[in-house]
């Protein structure tokens, strides 16, 4: 098991290195630079700025400088938010994104799996149709529609929860968590339902029925693991995406997370910040994929031996 983890971590590090290298050069291939959208500056000033951020050096030197910084865990200063380092920016936004993301993953997983199982057990019953409706709504209606509608109803009209911001403790969390988890509830419940219906058709479930151990035990002991394997495969990468924040959620609910930096940094050609965020998301994605593999191997003995 330890060998398996070490091997996966090593592969993950290689993947991350490739990702970072690619991002570094693709970013610089794109036209424009971090300061090209500012007002016209005199050539001396531009030369000065470029010298400060080492943009005047050849690309390979810039890359070397970046890698050297990375090894010392220093991602350098943001070119957009001049007084802050990339590390500061990520550290200031991440806790908000993590908190909302964490609860959204918990809610999406429990509600999604419960709805999916209920739908599969009572196929074409009321729960199944209700879950199906939530599924269609959650997938089809975008967050930027559901978010404002919920704000209008639950915050403005009913005043149950704040419209946005981060000043009301756990009550500030309610709407963003619901809106962020909704598409995932939809997806997870559909996935669970399909997977469970498929598993219930497996020959080994028929064998369990033939043993006369009762319907409940047949489902609990013989169908659940098979049902959850594909759901867990989805959850790993989805968790990495959810906890690193969403620009839509953070904009709609005025939250100071890091989600908005994903888009802003690229638009502003804030090279150091883009690299920092790529590293963060890529690293989390790789970690969660490894975690997913571990959980799957724990559930499925067939996956244990091929490292």
């Amino acid at each position: 098991m330890i060998r398996f983890v070490v091997k996966r971590l090593w592969n993950g590090a290689l993947t991350l290195a490739a990702l970072v290298t690619l991002t570094f050069f693709v970013m610089r291939l794109a036209p424009g630079g971090p300061f090209s959208k500012n007002r016209k500056l005199s050539p001396e000033v531009i030369a000065n700025i470029e010298a400060t951020y080492h943009l005047d050096e050849p690309l390979w030197m810039q890359f070397g400088r970046f890698v050297w910084g990375l090894l010392r865990l220093d991602l350098g200063p943001s070119t957009r938010f001049r007084d802050y380092s990339v590390g500061d920016i990520i550290a200031s936004g991440l806790p908000y994104s993590l908190t909302i993301g964490f609860w959204a993953v918990i809610v999406a997983t429990t509600v999604g799996i419960a709805l999916g199982v209920a739908g599969a057990l009572r196929r074409n019953g009321f729960t199944d149709y209700a879950a199906g409706t939530i599924g269609v709504i959650g997938i089809a209606i975008p967050i930027f529609v559901i978010g404002p509608v919920m704000q209008a109803v639950f915050a403005l009209k009913l005043s149950w929860v704040p419209v946005g911001g981060w000043n009301d403790g756990w009550r500030s969390l309610i709407l963003p968590v619901i809106v962020l988890s909704l598409p995932n509830i939809a997806y997870i419940s559909r996935l669970t339902r399909t997977s469970m219906i498929e598993t219930m058709r497996e020959n080994y479930v028929r064998t369990a029925r033939a043993k006369g151990i009762g319907e409940w035990r047949t489902i609990w002991r013989h169908t659940l693991k098979g049902t959850l394997l594909p759901v867990i495969a989805y959850l790993g990468p989805a968790t990495a995406a959810i906890i690193t924040g969403s620009i839509l959620i953070e904009t709609i609910f005025a939250l100071p997370g890091i989600g908005r930096h994903f888009v802003d940094a690229a638009l502003n050609r804030d090279y150091p910040l883009v690299m920092g965020i790529t590293l963060l998301y890529g690293g989390l994605l790789i970690l969660f994929n490894i975690a997913t593999d571990l959980v799957r191997a724990w559930l499925d003995p067939r996956l244990r031996h091929d490292g």
Binding site: N203, Y204, A208, K211, G212, G214, P301
Partner: peptide, 27 residues
Amino acid sequence: PRALDRVRGQSLSMIFQDPMTSLNPFM
């Protein structure tokens, strides 16, 4: 169903065609 479950696996049991898929792979 409950009465049938007292018979199945106890006084009446069955062997299936495909042994590769008829046992629970997780157990």
